[in-house]
Lab assay of single mutants.
Amino acid sequence: MQRVNMIMAESPGLITICLLGYLLSAECTVFLDHENANKILNRPKRYNSGKLEEFVQGNLERECMEEKCSFEEAREVFENTERTTEFWKQYVDGDQCESNPCLNGGSCKDDINSYECWCPFGFEGKNCELDVTCNIKNGRCEQFCKNSADNKVVCSCTEGYRLAENQKSCEPAVPFPCGRVSVSQTSKLTRAETVFPDVDYVNSTEAETILDNITQSTQSFNDFTRVVGGEDAKPGQFPWQVVLNGKVDAFCGGSIVNEKWIVTAAHCVETGVKITVVAGEHNIEETEHTEQKRNVIRIIPHHNYNAAINKYNHDIALLELDEPLVLNSYVTPICIADKEYTNIFLKFGSGYVSGWGRVFHKGRSALVLQYLRVPLVDRATCLRSTKFTIYNNMFCAGFHEGGRDSCQGDSGGPHVTEVEGTSFLTGIISWGEECAMKGKYGIYTKVSRYVNWIKEKTKLT
Rank of each mutant, 00 (worst) to 15 (best):
Q2P: 12
V4A: 11
M8C: 11
A9S: 12
G13W: 06
G13V: 13
I15F: 06
T16I: 09
I17A: 05
C18W: 06
L20N: 03
S25A: 08
V30C: 05
V30R: 15
L32E: 15
H34C: 04
H34K: 10
H34V: 11
H34N: 13
E35A: 12
N36M: 09
N36W: 06
A37F: 03
K39P: 15
N42P: 14
R43S: 14
P44T: 15
P44W: 08
P44M: 14
K45H: 09
S49G: 14
G50Y: 11
G50R: 15
L52K: 15
E54W: 06
F55N: 15
Q57C: 03
Q57D: 14
Q57T: 06
N59R: 15
N59D: 08
C69A: 03
S70R: 15
E72N: 15
R75E: 15
R75T: 15
T81F: 05
E82H: 07
T84H: 08
T85K: 06
E86W: 07
F87D: 15
W88Y: 15
Y91M: 15
D95L: 05
N100R: 08
P101V: 03
C102T: 00
N104R: 03
N104H: 10
N104F: 02
C108K: 01
K109Q: 09
D110A: 08
D111A: 09
D111Y: 07
C117N: 00
P120H: 05
F121R: 10
K126C: 03
N135P: 04
N138G: 03
Q143K: 00
F144R: 00
C145W: 01
K146Y: 10
T158D: 03
G160S: 07
L163K: 03
L163D: 00
A164Y: 03
E165V: 13
Q167Y: 09
S169Y: 06
A173M: 11
V174H: 07
G179V: 00
R180L: 06
S182Q: 07
Q185N: 09
K188E: 08
L189T: 08
L189K: 12
E193H: 11
D198A: 14
V199Q: 10
V202K: 12
A207N: 12
L211C: 09
L211Y: 08
L211M: 13
I214T: 13
T218P: 12
Q219L: 07
S220A: 08
F221N: 09
F224N: 13
F224L: 13
R226C: 05
V227G: 13
V228P: 06
G230W: 14
A233L: 07
A233T: 08
K234C: 03
K234T: 13
Q237K: 04
Q241F: 11
Q241G: 06
G246Q: 05
V248C: 04
D249E: 13
D249Q: 13
F251Y: 10
F251I: 11
C252A: 02
S255W: 02
N258H: 04
E259W: 03
W261S: 01
I262F: 02
V263K: 00
V263C: 02
A266V: 02
H267S: 11
C268Y: 01
C268P: 01
E270C: 08
T271E: 12
V273W: 11
V273A: 13
K274S: 08
K274Q: 08
I275P: 05
T276G: 06
V277I: 12
E281I: 13
N283K: 06
N283Q: 09
H289K: 12
H289R: 07
T290S: 11
T290M: 08
K293Y: 13
R294H: 02
N295K: 11
V296I: 06
V296E: 00
I297H: 05
R298V: 03
I299F: 08
I300R: 03
H303E: 08
H303R: 11
Y305G: 02
Y305F: 08
Y305D: 00
I309V: 14
N310H: 14
K311F: 05
Y312D: 02
D315L: 00
D315N: 10
I316N: 00
A317F: 01
L318V: 08
L318T: 01
E320Y: 03
E320M: 05
E320P: 00
L325Q: 00
V326P: 02
L327Q: 03
Y330I: 03
P333L: 00
I334M: 00
C335K: 00
I336S: 01
K339H: 08
K339M: 13
T342I: 02
G349D: 14
S350N: 13
G351I: 02
V353R: 08
S354A: 15
G357A: 14
R358M: 08
F360Y: 14
F360N: 14
K362P: 08
G363I: 06
A366Y: 11
A366P: 13
D378F: 03
D378G: 09
D378M: 04
C382N: 02
L383Y: 11
F388R: 12
F388D: 06
T389G: 13
N393E: 06
M394P: 01
G398S: 05
E401V: 08
E401F: 14
G402F: 15
R404W: 14
R404T: 14
D405N: 14
S406T: 13
Q408D: 12
S411L: 13
G413C: 08
H415E: 00
T417V: 11
T426P: 00
T426Y: 01
G427K: 00
W431Q: 13
G439L: 03
G439V: 03
I443D: 02
Y444G: 02
V447T: 06
R449F: 12
N452H: 14
W453P: 00
K457L: 10
K457Y: 13
K457R: 15
K459E: 13
L460Y: 14
